[in-house]
Design a protein around this nucleic acid. Structure first.
Lengths: 193, 193
DNA sequence: AAAAAAAGTGAAACCAGATTAACTTTTACC
DNA sequence: GGTAAAAGTTAATCTGGTTTCACTTTTTTT
């Protein structure tokens, strides 16, 4: 299955397209390959693309005043990633997005995305639905962060994203949960008893 | 200015509509008035409506296992409110949404919203844009919560929503920031020196 | 394969923010 | 307008999670 086909079958989950429409849609995307540790978004630069992950994993994070990392988002196969706030406003990013493994991505430029959305009601619907899911997801994360202790948050993460726990480094997971690696270490070996 | 006109002029900020389209859009909304302390969303019930605030203020919150409130969102004039996660999935809510002051709201039902979005590309665009802004906003909140101390979060809130600071009770603000009222009290009188 | 760098672990001291509790002020309501 | 309930304040004590530091393991580079 080509990357075009993969993004095509992803879109099928949301909207029903004719063969021609699917071609119009997927041909706006371009495949890119990035190596582990390579950055696709960096603070200060306007993020020109939104990325769909065909293969590999990535991590979006900010660096606080004190110099510490804070993970905002992970992405693996079938997920999207960018610095959304900066991307949709086309303003300089405040985040890094880095490959945690070698990746195959499909990228679409901001302009091409605008063209797609303007050209076809269904494409607009697709992006609206995707954005609503993102909103709901972020809201759940806020609720969890407000209502749960560190070890509960870890348990919920393991439950929700068992695959990610295997694939992302501990320091990235700890900073996603809003704790230090040392404390995560403690939590994990309390569990294992 | 009627409530219809107010929601009409709000929509103008996002999309350009003909007079007829604007009528189609706004006439799907219905004015409702709620008194202070009245609930418009409650856990266990599917939220049938999304609300646009014409006048007054509201608060969305969850109650954690320990019985404490955690404020997820505020809304004042020109803002929208509901339990989005439950609304878009049409599943029983996990939040309360309560009026902090007497309110005038415009409500749209889930079904009418679907009809609007399906009937006109521009309406779909409107909801997509609104959802993208919400996503960007929630992402910024997550970043702030991960990277800032309680007193920094308070300062940022005051800076960003000076009006809300005047209008919402301290306990609601504290629980939005993820701290106790006692600690907020401490922060405030440290500032005032 | 060795050396260096990055990631992960464990434990002691510490601190931001929670808890408890007693009190004051404001708001709601008969 | 008086009284009860809700909201806000202040202070002492406690705790979940951080910091610092020394060590081990894994990964990367040469």
């Amino acid at each position: 299955m080509t990357s075009q086909e993969k993004i095509g079958s992803y879109v099928d989950r949301f909207i029903r397209l004719t063969g021609e429409e699917k071609f119009e849609f997927t041909s706006r995307f371009k495949e890119t390959r990035v190596k582990k540790r390579q950055f696709i978004v960096q603070p200060g630069f306007v993020p020109k693309y939104r990325y769909f992950v065909i293969e590999g994993s990535l991590r979006a994070y900010v660096v606080g005043d004190e110099g510490k990392d804070h993970t905002i988002q992970f992405a693996i196969e079938d997920w999207w990633i960018s610095d959304y706030d900066s991307y949709i406003h086309q303003q300089p990013a405040s985040m890094f997005v880095v490959a945690l493994e070698d990746c195959v991505l499909m990228q679409i430029s901001f302009e091409d995305e605008q063209i797609l959305k303007a050209s076809n009601h269904k494409f607009e619907t697709f992006f609206r639905q995707k954005s609503e899911l993102a909103t709901a997801f972020l809201q759940r994360r806020i609720v969890t962060n407000l209502t749960r202790s560190a070890s509960e948050r870890y348990a919920i993460f393991v439950e929700t994203f068992p695959e990610l726990v295997q694939r992302v480094p501990q320091y990235a997971l700890a900073s996603y949960l809003g704790i230090t690696t040392q404390f995560l270490s403690k939590i994990r070996n309390q569990k294992s008893r």
